[in-house]
């Protein structure tokens, strides 16, 4: 039986990178004594996959992934047993059995939302006064790093929208951007482009981000969360 989960990743565990998180997740399944299925072959591994790696230092309200069990267990029971064995900062908020023929989260993913928490040298006013103008640009050219080189890329098309959600005197922005294997915009690339636009330095270690949602397209072409409409 295949399952899809939605998981939160909090402050306590945000410095654990993607591969280490996968191992930690597998150990949760072991401790919870959940009959996870293994791949066949010389080096069997647990059948667990995540939608998209989350960068080191980021938190998330909505990480998604799939796993396969040897048995057909009640989803709520699996969720409870897993949560009891979770390290601090990880929490499965939703778990469903998957319908036949649903593509895995990694290939389904098309869009993601993030919140950007700006450092103190960027004020709520900086955002209020500049966000519309930033979004109204025809093109937004940034330097994108690939493995081999750094080249110019236009990210305007990857930005669906962005909102000013500053509060308590802190500059905060919510962004809606493309995500996945075909088009992908990293939230820090967005933040850097915005800083450049308002002529402020981009001190990258002072920024915080939280991924708040991930979407796929349903049969009507609408963006829905990775866990909606997939339940058996």
């Amino acid at each position: 039986m295949k399952y899809r989960f939605k998981m939160e990743k909090g402050e306590e565990i945000k410095f654990i990178g993607h591969l280490d998180l996968l191992v930690a997740f597998q150990r949760v399944l072991k401790r919870a004594d959940i009959p996870i299925d293994y791949s066949k072959g010389f080096n069997p591994h647990q059948l667990v996959s995540f939608a998209s790696p989350l960068g080191l230092g980021l938190t998330s309200k909505a990480e998604y992934g799939d796993f396969q069990l040897k048995e057909d267990l009640d989803a709520e029971e699996v969720r409870e047993r897993m949560n009891k064995n979770m390290p601090d900062g990880l929490y499965i908020s939703k778990l469903v059995k998957l319908k036949e023929g649903v593509k895995n989260t990694m290939t389904s993913l098309e869009r993601a939302d993030y919140e950007i928490y700006f450092p103190d040298y960027i004020t709520p006013d900086d955002i209020k006064e500049n966000l519309d103008a930033f979004l109204n640009q025809k093109e937004i050219v940034v330097m994108k790093k690939t493995k081999k080189s750094t080249k110019e890329a236009d990210i305007r098309e990857d930005i669906f929208s962005a909102e000013d959600i500053s509060h308590d005197g802190k500059a905060v922005m919510k962004i809606y951007v493309s995500s996945g294997s075909t088009r992908n915009l990293k939230c820090d690339t967005f933040a850097e482009a915005f800083c450049k636009f308002i002529n402020k330095p981009f001190e990258k270690y002072k920024f915080n981000y939280c991924r708040t949602q991930m979407y796929m397209k349903n049969e009507n072409g609408d963006y829905v969360s990775l866990i909606s409409g997939v339940e058996l």
């Binding site: 565990i13 990178g17 930690a24 080191l56 230092g57 390290p87 270690y205």
Partner: peptide, 15 residues
């Protein structure tokens, strides 16, 4: 922590 190698060395919170 964002500027050092393997920040998980310094945060604890292990199972």
């Amino acid at each position: 922590l964002l500027q050092v190698e393997k920040p998980a060395r310094y945060v604890g919170r292990e199972v």
